[in-house]
């Protein structure tokens, strides 16, 4: 029982730590959005193209954050480590 509790707690902590990876996409996407704003300011007539490209780039840049989310979700909801006991 104690081992189980330790593993569960460690899993929760691990999930929390995994989500630190959320920093990266946040900074990166903020950077991309800022550049996008600059581009729109420079060339307002290309706004739709810029927005589309930026969203696409953001979506791809988000992948790392998504991977961390996947790991966190697996750690919390699937508990693979508990089953190893």
């Amino acid at each position: 029982m104690l081992e189980r509790a330790i593993v569960l707690g460690a899993s929760a902590v691990g999930a929390g730590i995994a989500m630190i990876a959320g920093l990266g996409p946040g900074i990166g996407q903020g950077f991309a959005a800022g550049k996008g704003c600059e581009a729109v300011g420079r060339q307002p007539e290309a706004q739709s193209d810029i927005t589309r490209t930026m969203l696409l780039g953001c979506a791809v840049a988000e992948s790392t954050g998504i991977y961390s989310l996947v790991i966190a979700l697996i750690l919390i909801f699937m508990n693979p480590l508990v089953n190893m006991l």
Binding site: S63, I66, Y67, V70
Partner: peptide, 17 residues
């Protein structure tokens, strides 16, 4: 192989979050 995973988890993660 990673494409469908990131594609699906992105959508699922955003909405469920």
């Amino acid at each position: 192989l990673v494409n469908p995973i990131s594609l699906s988890f992105r959508h699922f993660g955003n909405i469920s979050a």
